[in-house]
Design a protein around this nucleic acid. Sequence first.
DNA 1: CACAGGTCTCTTTTT
DNA 2: GAGACCTGTG
Length: 811
Amino acid sequence: MSIYDKLNQQQKEAVFQTRGPVLILAGAGSGKTSVLTHRAAYLLDEVGVRPYNILAITFTNKAASEMRERIDNLIGFGSQDIFVSTFHSMCVRILRRHVDYIGFDNNFTIYDTDDQKQVMRDVLKKLDIDPKKLKERTVLNAISSAKNELVTPEKFAIGSGGDYTRSLISKCYFEYQAALHKNNAFDFDDLIMKTVELFTEHPEVLEKYHERWTYIMVDEYQDTNTAQFELVRLLADTKDKNLCVVGDDDQSIYRFRGANIRNILDFEMHYPDAKVIKLEQNYRSVQTILDAANAVIRNNAARKNKSLWSKNGEGEKIRFLQLDTASEEAETIADSIARNVRKGLCKFGDNAILYRTNGQSRLLEERFVKENIPYRIVGGINFYSRREIKDLLAYLKTVDNGKDDLAAKRIINIPKRGIGATSVAKVQTAADNLGISFFDTLSCLDKADIKGATAEKLRSFETMILRLRAVNAAEGPAKLLREILDITDYINQMDVDSEEEADERIGNIEEFLSKVTTYCEEHETPTLTGLLEEIALVADIDSLDESEDRVLLMTIHSAKGLEFDNVYLAGMEEGLFPSYMSVTEGEEGIEEERRLAYVGITRARKNLTISSARARMINGETQFNAISRFVHEIPNNLFDNPPVRRKSYDDDSSYRFRRDSGEDTFGGGYRRNRDSDDYSGFRRDSDSDDYSGFKRDSDRDDYTGFKRTADVEAPYNPYSSKPRAFYSSKKTPEEEKPFISKASALGSLTKGSEMASGSKLKAGDRVRHIKFGEGTVLSVVKEPRDDKVTVQFDTAGQRVMYASFAKLQKL
DNA sequence: CACAGGTCTCTTTTT
DNA sequence: GAGACCTGTG
């Protein structure tokens, strides 16, 4: 009995085919990770390859760590030397080693989307381009596409020809790259392109990797873009070409980020002696779900023909729900899950709600909170792009990489130090003239012709950073972060509009602190550079703990590679899914959306529920959308209640604006037009173009009887990754534990004993604050996290602060 | 220089 | 509807 006995015929074939190029077309749920891990085992055990010589590339950290784990379980000793990594991490590793060949320092920073935007804004300003004429986004998109296609600024310029806009973008591209270089930074796309550049211009470096990685496997090959394709091609460009790629052309859903489906469709063209193996047996889903998936994807022209089948039985029919509004959709889904759990049919964690856009999570979340259903939202606003976290990161980056002007400029006046835009601009000009970084300019302000009070403020900022560098060198990133929070008094200096906001942000800071602490504990030699790199490259999905018993909410993109017993595909409406953008784009766009639908459907093991709403508010306007074409592509006999075919909302004569059952929607929820009582703004004449695009004005939806989104209470930040709702009123032990340790971690931040513990303060006490001066305590509210003190300052007004952070001295 | 209030604009999806 | 951005005022 060997470990390979459990594999089916095709899987075995894929595992045993170790020489030369191999293309494994692995349908959804066909056990491709199993094939890859067994293949690694086979290479080690039977072919005698050393683990050090094997490279496995994935797209997400989650996929990488999953593969790592499964390889470790299967192989055990020695497996840790197999290099399992994402494209981006691998490139960072390579660049950190050899980036000096192409003129960067090896402690380079990785810029995220916000950073890119900031750089581009500066570029547009510098080139005196009207941002209304040419948007940052447009330019950045063009540059990103260029990089994904390995088009350098030089090549881009040549390709511009007489096209005015394009030559303008070309100028921006040059300037943008220059700015990144100056800041010693790469953007995401650079990581791949610059690695290719390194290998192309310095074959001796590539040669080292040829010697090392003699067997290469690439997962999710259908999502590779041209740059990644070229990178793989270079790495595998050895005598033997032992390259094994695994993918499913039907699951190619990253065209928007340059993925080129031709890479997988044309694999045999690039490698004529490639062996092709199809895995079509599905081990995940019941046949009904596979039939639905097959029926949908069959409508795509550009694909390799294959058809999934399983031995898991027919299973339940697919449910279809059409609701009047998106809130009712959310309500129905939440109720359905709650009912099934109550009946003991499933756990919360067996359910996932998948949608096309992150924005759809809001209503669902509100409903889940209302019904006390435990849930977790994956994705949306990245944790690290919250304002307070970005501020703290900018501190860390400034300490780490003094060339990162972006970071230094972000924090030079956070918290407020009385350094305004004028002073910043002055320093920047001087820096440009001197050819040094923004931060380095602070040490020679006399050359910059900055004197007096401003110079003093700037110098003290510089001194602070230098001091922080010493802290980092001596005690590492975790201590550094605490020191930053401490000496800037960041938490009390945040300007917030409400207590809720303060709570939210303090919670985020706590979470950040605990993440940094964890990083330091988990790494033998934790470094600031390493920490920042890890932060730059993680996705929300990477840290998903599937053992939690919570309903999962995420986009279909995020759900790729995952599976659940019960899947709810929400918001299946024309204009939303397929998206309006892709509809206007034509057939290629639709085919990509259809693949996405295929990915969504095939996430389900047992039960699939598809829903759509007749009306939904998007970007402040109510849209009336027809049922998604993809729903209609599923044969009626697979549904328990097939959807009614209808071309668009207006064709449905049975539908009326006012709901028959009136009740509470017209009660508390109903509001008249904000601006006037005049109904004339509401035209329902059929020649009005309002209807052609399925769109209407937000002001008009009042008349439809639908709830306005604003009328629904929204006490929670939908983007917070922190859990906010629990099914029982008691917190689970898992929730309590880190909570306490975080709080104590924060407690240790404060220096001296006289300030902390708010319990010592009471209403009426006179106190002194380091910045706000003297004041009187109005109230002290005990909170689990920390005591919240409200102080009426004599000169600085009323402030709410957290006792252990506020340097409040009792008088 | 800081802040309040008004205007404008919406990448669908993410490493 | 919400956040980013701009502008005028103290």
